[in-house]
Amino acid sequence: MSTTFAVPGIPFGLTPSPGSDWVVAGDRVEVVAPAHTDLFIDPSGESGTAAESMLNAVTLLGAPGAGDFVFSARVHAGFGAMFDAAVLLVWADERHWAKLCFEQSPAGTPMVVSVVTRGVSDDANSFTVDGDAVWLRISRVGRLFALHASTDGDWWHFVRAFALGDGIDEVRLGFEGQSPTGEGCRVSFERVSFARETLGDLRDGR
């Protein structure tokens, strides 16, 4: 039987992926992402399939239920290698999901990155971050999902908006850690918040 975690700020339980070692201590959630772990389905078709190594990142996910929401956290990553990342994740199934990442870029600079997967993954860089932490936020507005990031938890930069696909109503929501090219990465999440509310204007910074 899977362990269910209660995370302060989230009104539903979260279940870890098999073999992952998530820890909840006070209001902080953390895990060490193992070496060579990631969530990505290469659109070129050259990196394999969903059944292979591309969907082996450690996750901690729960079901928010129907309706709009706003989910956010301040995230940290102990970067050691390219594409190490701490991630907020919304997951429908192995071919429909999206992640908002605090990730180490190929230039060695921390960066906000988003990936939306509908059959295959896309990949878009947003902005660089001066430091080892950033605020990330995923919101649902009807069938639309919106991603935002903030350096101070007050003013939110719009990253992107998208739909995962027709007929996708039930999703799981939570955290992910990855280290695709490295030997592991410690990631943590704090000041976690989940609100059953509808976000207003996606581009007004609130």
Rank of each mutant, 00 (worst) to 15 (best):
R143V: 08
E46C: 06
F79H: 02
I138G: 06
F102D: 08
S47R: 11
G184I: 04
E190H: 05
R160T: 14
G45T: 06
V120D: 13
G19F: 04
A50W: 08
G165C: 07
F175W: 00
R206E: 14
V31I: 10
S114L: 12
G13N: 05
D152M: 14
P43Y: 00
G182F: 02
T128M: 12
L100Y: 03
F145S: 14
V90R: 07
D204T: 03
E30K: 11
D93Q: 04
N125V: 11
D132L: 13
D169E: 15
S150M: 13
Q178Y: 00
P64N: 06
L164I: 08
D123K: 13
V23M: 06
F145V: 08
R196Y: 01
W135T: 07
T49W: 07
F127A: 14
P106F: 02
D27F: 01
F189S: 07
A50S: 11
T49K: 12
A161S: 15
T3I: 10
D84S: 03
S47G: 10
P11C: 02
A86S: 14
L61W: 01
L147S: 06
F40S: 08
V75R: 01
A195C: 10
H96K: 08
S139I: 08
G62K: 00
R196D: 09
H148C: 11
R74I: 05
V112I: 14
R160K: 15
R118M: 09
G174F: 01
L100A: 11
R140C: 13
R74F: 02
V187C: 09
A73D: 01
D93E: 03
A107R: 15
F162Q: 09
V171T: 10
G184Q: 03
A124Y: 07
F83K: 04
F189D: 06
A86R: 02
A63W: 01
D21K: 14
E46R: 13
G142E: 12
V24P: 00
F158K: 09
H36Y: 12
G108C: 09
A86E: 04
V129T: 06
V112E: 01
A92E: 03
C101T: 04
L147Y: 13
F83H: 07
H76L: 09
V120E: 13
F175M: 06
S179Q: 04
A133H: 13
T37S: 08
G78Q: 13
R196Q: 11
L55Y: 00
G167W: 03
M1R: 05
S121W: 03
S179Y: 00
G200W: 01
G19S: 07
V75L: 03
W22A: 09
S72K: 10
F69K: 08
A107P: 00
E46D: 10
V187W: 00
I138K: 05
A35K: 10
L39V: 05
N125E: 15
L136W: 05
W97L: 12
S188Q: 06
A25C: 10
V24E: 00
T15M: 13
A6L: 12
D38W: 00
S139Q: 11
R203D: 04
G19W: 03
D93T: 04
G119V: 09
R203E: 12
T151L: 15
G142P: 08
